[in-house]
């Protein structure tokens, strides 16, 4: 295909190139150059590293940055722990005809949209919400537990909106896992735990990794869940970028922060792939 430089080839290339250049390369280059522009004392735009330096000078940016990174990693791990049993059940335990219906049910929150599901969680988690009311009615607690506008509620929101993107790649990895591998391992004397650790996990690692990348990227770049469910205390890095752009109208610094987030998330994914011995080509396929 690469050697075939026919007109059809170029025709097919046009949409791809348009997309890549117009929607990805040019905007990013624009942001990149913008992030180095700084208005000096005389009101002139000059090249400068000041936009990046301001990030390192203010402690609050730093802390937000680190918190965002740690929470994103945490939510990704939680998403794996929560969804793995579900994915395993849907692919290996339940009959095929029911499982496709169940997957359809799982996807409903995506159709509804993030904002609406987040408001749904507010109804559940607020001080006089469903959960607190229920706990007080059965007499387990006397006064409501504060759940909304905390890191807890933020984590739940992030997890809920992202975990489906973990299930799908994991299910396709599990589906390709031949049941006889599990039986062979058990026949050779492996306990359930050993089968899980030595057979299922290594086999599904590419699926887990690609699901993990999607979840991590969604979470680290999310704005709605931290902003609404996390309240004032959420301190999510996207909120800092949002403030730069729309509260202080400092687009140049906002661009610099955006690039820092891109570097951070790429760096963490690279490290995670290195640590688990995965290759990006394999995970992507």
């Amino acid at each position: 295909m690469k050697k075939n430089k026919s007109s059809t080839f170029f025709l097919l290339m046009v949409p791809v190139l348009l997309w890549l250049v117009l929607l990805i390369v040019i905007p990013h280059l624009d942001m990149f150059f913008r992030s180095f522009r700084f208005e000096n004392d005389e009101g002139l735009m000059v090249f400068s590293l000041n936009n990046y330096l301001s990030f390192f000078e203010d402690k609050i940016y730093w802390l937000t940055f680190v918190k965002t990174a740690l929470y994103s990693i945490g939510v990704t791990i939680l998403a794996f722990i929560v969804t793995f049993p579900v994915a395993f059940f849907l692919t290996k335990v339940v009959a095929k005809k029911y499982s496709s219906f169940m997957v359809l049910l799982l996807l409903i929150p995506i159709w509804i949209g993030e904002l609406v599901t987040i408001y749904g969680w507010m109804i559940l988690l607020s001080d006089n919400g469903v959960i607190n009311n229920f706990l007080m009615q059965i007499g387990l607690i006397d006064s409501p537990i504060v759940m909304l506008y905390t890191n807890f509620s933020m984590t739940i929101g992030l997890l809920y909106m992202s975990m489906l993107f973990m299930i799908i790649p994991m299910m396709s990895a599990l589906e390709s896992l031949d049941d006889s591998l599990i039986e062979a391992a058990s026949d050779l004397g492996a306990s359930k735990w050993t089968i899980f650790r030595q057979i299922i996990i290594p086999y599904t690692t590419p699926g887990i990794a690609s699901g993990g990348i999607i979840v991590f990227m969604l979470v680290i770049g999310d704005y709605v869940a931290p902003n609404i469910l996390g309240g004032k205390s959420s301190l999510w890095f996207t909120e800092q970028i949002y403030n730069k752009f729309l509260a202080t109208f400092n687009w140049n610094e906002g661009a610099a922060f955006g690039f820092l987030l891109l570097l951070l998330s790429s760096g963490i994914i690279w490290l995670a792939l290195k640590l688990t011995g995965q290759k990006l080509e394999k995970v992507g396929s």
Partner: peptide, 14 residues
Amino acid sequence: PEQRAVNIVFQNLA
């Protein structure tokens, strides 16, 4: 199966 002194070679070898 893991406690039986019996081992199996699967059709697809596994």
